[in-house]
């Protein structure tokens, strides 16, 4: 089967993107990056309570939120989104942005249900690649008592097929992992080269 290639053209003109950062400089820079990506509908919030009220009243297609927000941090916001809102908004892709990850927050980052945690330094290239990755995301969503969000076992799947960064050992979501022992070479040869048998 031919692999889908990395898309040459993408269209974010119709996407509604919610940007949340308490640092006004960072919020302005993030907004400029998304203007550059062609996003026309941006909702900018300087606080998480403001972002909560936006999500409760409007549809958004993508959320980018800084991890270290005061009051309710980016991890808690994502956890709230995944657990306390109704579908389909509950499954909205969320990218968490972090500068320095404090030791006390590492576990929160793993368990909150974000689609990605993007660490700085951040370039428009990295951000766009992550958005493209979200567009081709093959991960399952998982819902259980202790977690709601994308399947965290992404390491064995790697980036989606066609995007840069895949390793030779990455599994395919379509084929899956092997469930039986490998065939030996003689058996394979017999399948590939059937021979006449003299009776």
């Amino acid at each position: 089967m031919a692999r889908p290639s990395t898309p040459d053209r993408v269209n974010l003109a119709r996407s509604k993107v919610l940007l949340v950062d308490h640092n006004q400089n960072s919020l302005d820079m993030l907004s400029s990056i998304f203007h550059g990506f062609g996003v026309k509908q941006q909702i900018k919030c300087g606080s998480t309570p403001e972002a909560v009220s936006i999500v409760e009243t409007r549809d958004v297609d993508l959320v980018l939120i800084d991890c270290s927000m005061p009051e309710m941090d980016g991890y808690d916001f994502t956890r709230w989104l995944r657990r306390e809102t109704e579908p389909p908004i509950r499954y909205t892709p969320v990218i968490l942005l972090t500068g320095h990850a404090a030791q006390s927050k590492v576990r929160k980052g793993r368990d909150c249900g974000a689609s990605f945690v993007v660490t700085k330094p951040l370039t428009p290239n990295v951000l766009l690649q992550r958005i493209l990755w979200l567009g081709a995301d093959e991960r399952n969503l998982v819902e259980c008592d202790t977690y709601v969000g994308p399947d965290r076992r992404v390491r064995s799947l790697g980036p989606p097929v066609g995007l840069p960064g895949r390793r030779s050992g990455d599994l395919s979501e379509h084929v899956g992992a092997a469930t039986e022992a490998n065939m030996d070479q003689t058996s394979i040869d017999m399948m590939m080269k059937p021979m006449k048998v003299a009776l």
Binding site: R9, N11, H35, G36, F37, D61, P124, I131, D137
Partner: peptide
């Protein structure tokens, strides 16, 4: 996701052009 569908909408721009515009801004 709606985002995944929108990314494939007709029209759009080259990925490298979007990166260049965003970097300039």
């Amino acid at each position: 996701s709606t985002l995944a569908r929108q990314l494939q909408d007709p029209g759009g721009s080259q990925v490298r052009d979007l990166e260049r515009q965003a970097t300039a801004r």
